[in-house]
Design a protein around this nucleic acid. Sequence first.
DNA 1: TCTGGGGTCCTGCGGCGC
DNA 2: TCTGGCGCCGCAGGACCC
Length: 501
Amino acid sequence: MLCITLYEFLRALSNLLKVNKSFVLFLSLIFITKSLMTIGVTVASKIANIINKPNVLANLPTTTIKIIAAYAVKRAIITFFISLIMLSFVREMVKKMTKKIVHIDLNAFFAQCEINKDKSLLGKPIAIGSNGKRGVVSTSSYEARRFGVYSGQSMAEARSLCKNLIVIPGDYHLYSKESYNFFSYLKKRYKLIEQASIDECYIDMTDCIPDDITERDYLLDLQLSLYKYTNLKCSIGLGDNRFLAKMASDYQKPLGLTIIHRENIEEILWPIKISNMFGIGKKTAPKLGKLGIKTIGDLAKTNSSEVKSLLESYFDSAKAHANGYGDDIVDPSPFDPKSVGASRTFLDDTTDYDEVKNMIIYLSKEVSNELKKYHKLSSTCSLTIRNQDFVTHSKQLTLTMPTNDNVVIAQTALIILDRFWKQEPLRLVGVAMLQVFDEKEGYRQMELFSKENIVKPLIDSNETVENLLLEGKLKKASSVKKNKKNNDKNPSYKPFVGLEE
DNA sequence: TCTGGGGTCCTGCGGCGC
DNA sequence: TCTGGCGCCGCAGGACCC
């Protein structure tokens, strides 16, 4: 550890003095050798004083002094070379301790899938997304990007920027299949691989790149074989940690290959605009700009209290990232969701209760299916509504028993709707189950309750909520609250904590 | 031009129990 | 019996990512 600290100190010193590391190393060794010799002479004089022979050195014959001097020079030279060997050893050690994290990003992935399906689209400006009046661009081809068409943009604006834009509605089954093929190929080659989304992943390649091939050549070969076997183009970034790898893959697109080690952050990372730094979004970037932080290099060097108070707890990790430090763990375990949700924007804002209710029932089925797919349960249901002013509100309700049943989810979401919706026009509605956990864990918890509660279903899952409401098997929360006496007569099941009075 | 849909993580606030 | 301080936890909202 001491050796590593010394090495890091030398590196920092060379960065600070803006001189070559070898020069600093040379100066340091001269300084150390000279210090050791001075200490040696001082120690010799002290010993001479202790043994009451202060003139012992002066009384020595000239030949003896020459021999001692020659011996001292010999020792100094040996010390110099030993230090040199030790430092190169430390260097190697630090190099070995540094990980090689790779980030692979599929370029304009959805657009590539569409082009592979229909070759006539090759070279044309295309955008994936809904063509409706409220559609937005999900992905655009590089030809469309030249017209200023980007993800997140409204389709109306995209069409106005690029008159020949070909709009394609998304085929998410196709994209999932292509993504599966691409990452399956990589998973066969690498053990430590973490899929971060449908079109990107991190791989720990620390022990994968052979010594007799450069990192660049190895990754270039990988990039070509990925294209050969999957017909998909990707950008690859290699760094000492996840942050550097991610920034490296973003550096050049399409088909980019960038390597960022801590040693070269000043040339590659620091000139990048702060708005392009991973973790700094469109809200924070302008605020940082006003404080004089225009590039990642500015953030790396700042100690401004204003920047600290703006970024709060994120300041330390953001500054560490800007200086080339960060998390280098790649977790290969499969995706384990913490929440599952579904939401839809209405074609037109609505105040129609039935329209909102039907949408909630539809979304609850989607959420239920996803929970079942991952074998998950949850006790927390959340309803999100967005009004015509684009203001979003969400409310939660906690159930006494965890569930993944679509009817119970719909029932809960409708109760929240009844309690909080003031009948203002709605733009969007969303249903989500939060803090989800494994079914096995859920059943262990349920065993704490009576067996009757576990085996007796509340209602038949195949029935629709509308029918249940009509038949009186299911009641709106509002009616339950008004009819408290009836509710008290039948206290067999109280699914909602939030409704207990 | 007028803003989708799926997530994660963090923060502030308020309720609650000790 | 009342009150303040403290920590915990649930909730709502915001920012960020793809």
